[in-house]
């Protein structure tokens, strides 16, 4: 009997039933970091959505309208990237839509004068993105490692987008700042930075 036959015998003896909770194992770390991020800001800053009472719902809708599709879209893309042989390109392309729309809205906003910049709380926003972006990125890496990604740079970049967009979604309800220039500088650029970090670290962090 060859060593490969021995190996097959050993693997077959381990049982045939794959884990039935495969999807839950993938989703759990993503949900955990999202809850931790939102819970932290709720505990630190108290009542959310105070800016909505002053400026109306539109600024909040723009922020979440950008970040939440990225949260769910990047998780959806990661799920495909983690399954060998599955085409994830279309899902990844979908992630470009919020960025393209944000670019259009930024152009319109700048054309009509834009909001105040950089605003009074820009440093808090940057801390939120700089702290929780990497934490949520780590959650996405743990989730993806449970799967079997074969395109590690792409998976790393998408994990970075997930990390950044969750950090933004969690902090946005407490952010009083307005204007697309603010959103681009303190939210979108950090998300892209996280994607770049993920692209660079993906091959190291996701190798299996």
């Amino acid at each position: 009997m060859s060593s490969t036959d021995d190996l097959i015998a050993g693997l077959a003896a381990e049982g045939v039933t794959p884990a039935s909770h495969a999807l839950r194992r993938f989703v759990m770390p993503l949900v955990a970091v999202s809850v931790i991020s939102a819970g932290f800001w709720l505990a630190m800053l108290g009542k959310p959505f105070t800016a909505v009472e002053v400026y109306g719902p539109v600024p909040m809708m723009v922020k979440w309208g950008f970040s939440l599709p990225l949260v769910f879209g990047s998780a959806w893309a990661l799920h495909a990237l983690g399954r060998p042989g599955q085409d994830a390109h279309r899902r990844m392309l979908c992630l470009a839509i919020p960025f393209a729309l944000a670019a259009v809205v930024l152009a319109i906003d700048l054309a009509i004068g834009g909001g105040r910049f950089p605003g009074a709380t820009w440093d808090r926003c940057l801390i939120a993105m700089g702290t929780f972006g990497p934490i949520c990125f780590a959650g996405a890496i743990i989730a993806t490692r449970w799967l079997a990604p074969t395109e590690l740079r792409k998976a790393g970049a998408v994990a970075g987008i997930f990390g950044g967009s969750v950090a933004m979604s969690a902090y946005a309800p407490f952010c009083p700042e307005l204007g697309m220039l603010f959103m681009t500088t303190f939210y979108i650029l950090p998300i892209l930075a996280m994607a770049a970090i993920g692209w660079l670290l993906g091959p190291k962090l996701l190798r299996w």
Partner: peptide, 26 residues
């Protein structure tokens, strides 16, 4: 083979095995 065994939960029921297997081999 070890990878196939350890990552068998990434093959969805109903999806063909061959592309999945070849992607792992690649």
């Amino acid at each position: 083979l070890i990878a196939v065994h350890q990552k068998r939960h990434t093959l969805d029921p109903g999806r063909p095995v061959a592309p999945w297997l070849h992607a792992i081999a690649r």
